[in-house]
Design a protein around this nucleic acid. Structure first.
Lengths: 335, 335
DNA sequence: TACGAATGCGTAAGCGTTTACAAGGAAAGG
DNA sequence: CCTTTCCTTGTAAACGCTTACGCATTCGTA
C-alpha cells in the first residue's frame, strides 16, 4: 500500500496525493476530500523512510539520557517527550550512562538516524573549554543541540539550566542562619551542575564567614543510589568522629539516606540534624519529617528545552542560554 | 557526503561500498580495507532513511509507555532500552497516557515510523476478547508485539508478565496468617494486572475463609500518585468508620501513603497496622519501618521481553507467554 | 589445456516519497 | 473573443541506499 495505490483509487496523480499528505494549499477542496477518503478507507500509512529521504527530516528529536531509571531524569524524559510529541515531533531515546565515550557513541547513533535535533540531558558536560566535548562541536555543526542542565558555549548549542550555584548557596545560608555550623555536603556526581552546587555550598559558607572544611565535603562514589548504602556511608563519616549538625545533598535520595542515618544514630530531625535535599522529588514526601529540598523547576526547564528547540528548528532567534532560579521548599527536616 | 562520494574516492562502485556497509562477504579484504579507510577519513555516516527504504528496517523498536515518570515504568524503560541497544536496536519512545485512544494513536505513530517491533508497557490491556484492542490485531499483522505485564492471545502478540494473581494471593495469605483480619486493599489502576491483583486479594481471603467486603476494597482514582493525597484518602476511609488492621496496595507509592496515614492516625507499624506494597521499588526503603513489598521481577521481565522480541525478529520460535513468579520481600512493615 | 564453479565487482532497477517544472483549464480583463 | 493570470494537476527527476543480475577473472579439476 503506497502512494501509487492511493492515487489510482482516487483518480489523481501521486503528486496530488503527496500534496494532500503534506497539507499543501495547492489542492482543491474537492480533490482533497476524495483523497483523504481513500486514504482513510484503505488505512494508508505513509512510509516514514521515504518521507525522510525526501524531506530530510523525520520529525524526530533525539534524547540522550544518562539513566532513564533515575527518577529525576525519568521525570524530565516524561516532560520532554510529551511536549515534543504535542508539537509533532517524536523522540528517539538513547540511554548511555555517564561515560563520555558512551555518550559520544550515543550522539553518533542519533546523528545517523538523522534526528532533527538532540537534547542532551543530565549535564554530563562541563565548561566551555573541555576538550573531551569536541564531538558536541561536530554534532552541533549538523543539527541544533539543547543541553538540559549543561553549559557549552558554541554555535547551535543551546543551554537550559537552573542556577544551581545560587540555589545551593541559599540553601547553605538558610542552614547557617538557623544556627547550624557544621554542614556536611554530600554529592553524587561531579558533572557540570554538580560542580556548580559544590561551589554554591562553599560560597554560602564564606558569605557568612564560616571556613570550608574538606572533611565535611563528601563524594558518594557508588553509581547506583541505594538508600541503605547512603545511610551507612553517612554513618561511617559519623564514626570517623566528624561532627555535623546538618546535611546538604545534591540529590534527594542522598537526603533520604541522611534521614535514615539520623534514625539509626538516634538523632532527631530537625532538632539535632537538619537535612536539605535537591530536586524536590517525590522522595521528599516519603520521609518523616518531610524533607526540605531545592526545587529546580524541572518542568519549566523541560518546556524551555522544547520551545528553544522548536524555535531553532523553525529558524527563529532563540536565547543561547536560559537560566531559571531554584527555590528552597521548606519542610519538616529543617528548623 | 553519500555513497557516491565514498565510491569515487575509493575507486570502486557504489555497490561495493554498500556491500562493505552491510558486511557482505562478497568483497575482497583489500577492497574492504580501502573503502573502510575512506569512510573513516571522510567521517561518513550512512543515511538511515535511505537504508530504511532499501532494507525495510531501521533497526528500531518502539516502546509504548503510559508514563515515563512513573518510577516502575521508568525502571522498565531503562532495562529495555539498554538491552535493545546492546543488541543493535534503538528505541523510539512514545508516552501516551493510559487512554485507549491515545495508545492507539501511539501505536499508529510507531507503525508509520516502521519500527521493527513494539513493546507495549504497563498492561493497559485487558483480556483476549476485549473489543477495544482491535488495533493490536492490526498492529500485530504487520510487526511483532510484546506486551509487558499484559495478555492478549493472538498471532504475533507475545506476553511477558509476572503472576500478579498468585503474588497478591500470597501476600494476602501472609497478612492473614500473621493474624490480620481486616485487610484494606488499595489499588490505582484497573488494567490487566490491576485486575489480576485484585482477584488475587479476593482469592487470598477466600482461601482462609475470610469474607470479601466491598468497603475494604478501594480504588484510588487520581491519575497522579501523590503521597499526601493518598494519606488523606486513607484517613478518610478511617473516618468513615471502616476498621482495618492491614493495608495491601497495588503499588509501593500507595503504601508510602499508608505509612503516612499510620503516623498521622497515631497507629504503629506493624503492631497496629501491617502494610504491604507492590513492585519492591526504592520507595520501600525510604519509609520507617521499611515496607514489605512484592518483587515482581521487573529486570527479568524486561530481559525476557527483549529476548522474545529478538527471537521473533530472527524468525525463531519463541514462547507466546512467559510467566514469572513474584516474591514477597518481607521488611519491617509486617509482623 | 579446457571447462565449470566460485569469486569480485559493476550496472541499473528498485524502495516510496517530495517537488520543480510544465501544462491545461477557468476566470478575469480588455 | 482573445490574452493574461491564477489555480489545479500531472510528469519526471531527485533523495541515498540495497540488491538482482550479469560480466570478468581466478581457481580447481579432469
Amino acid at each position: 500500500m503506497n502512494i501509487y495505490d492511493i492515487s489510482e483509487k482516487a483518480g489523481v496523480s501521486i503528486a496530488t496525493v503527496s500534496r494532500v499528505l503534506n497539507g499543501s494549499s495547492r489542492v482543491s477542496p474537492k480533490t482533497r476530500e476524495r483523497v483523504l477518503a481513500v486514504m482513510a478507507q484503505q488505512g494508508y500509512v505513509p512510509n516514514a523512510f521515504a518521507r525522510g529521504l525526501g524531506l530530510k527530516s523525520m520529525k524526530t528529536i533525539g534524547l540522550l539520557c544518562p539513566n532513564a531509571s533515575d527518577s529525576y531524569l525519568a521525570q524530565a524524559l516524561s516532560y520532554l517527550e510529551r511536549a515534543f510529541r504535542g508539537n509533532g515531533y517524536d523522540c528517539l531515546l538513547c540511554c548511555t550512562g555517564k561515560k563520555l565515550l558512551d555518550r559520544t557513541k550515543g550522539v553518533e547513533m542519533l546523528l545517523s538516524k538523522h534526528v532533527d535535533g538532540i537534547v542532551l540531558m543530565g549535564s554530563t558536560f562541563v565548561e566551555e573549554d573541555d576538550a573531551g566535548n569536541n564531538y558536541l562541536r561536530c554534532a552541533a555543526a549538523q543539527i541544533p543541540l539543547v543541553l538540559l542542565n549543561g553549559s557549552f558555549a558554541f554555535d547551535n548549542v543551546y543551554c537550559v539550566l537552573c542556577d544551581d550555584y545560587h540555589a545551593t548557596l541559599e540553601a547553605t545560608q538558610s542552614l547557617l542562619d538557623s544556627g547550624r555550623r557544621n554542614i556536611l555536603y554530600l554529592y553524587h556526581s561531579s558533572n557540570f551542575s554538580g560542580k556548580k552546587k559544590l561551589n554554591g555550598y562553599k560560597a554560602g559558607l564564606q558569605s557568612r564567614g564560616i571556613p570550608v572544611r574538606d572533611e565535611l565535603i563528601r563524594f558518594y562514589t557508588e553509581d547506583k543510589l541505594n538508600v541503605p548504602d547512603v545511610r551507612d556511608f553517612i554513618l561511617a563519616i559519623d564514626r570517623e568522629g566528624v561532627a555535623f549538625d546538618a546535611v546538604l545533598t545534591s540529590e534527594d535520595v542522598l537526603s533520604v539516606g541522611a534521614a535514615k542515618y539520623a534514625r539509626v544514630a538516634n538523632r532527631s530531625v530537625p532538632e539535632s540534624l537538619s537535612i536539605i535535599g535537591y530536586n524536590n522529588s517525590n522522595f521528599c514526601l516519603c520521609c518523616e519529617p518531610e524533607l526540605t529540598s531545592v526545587d529546580n523547576k524541572l518542568e519549566s526547564l523541560c518546556n524551555q528545552c522544547v520551545s528553544t528547540m522548536l524555535n531553532v528548528l523553525a529558524g527563529q532567534e532563540s536565547p543561547q542560554k536560559s537560566l531559571f532560579m531554584g527555590e528552597l521548599v521548606k519542610r519538616g527536616s529543617t528548623l
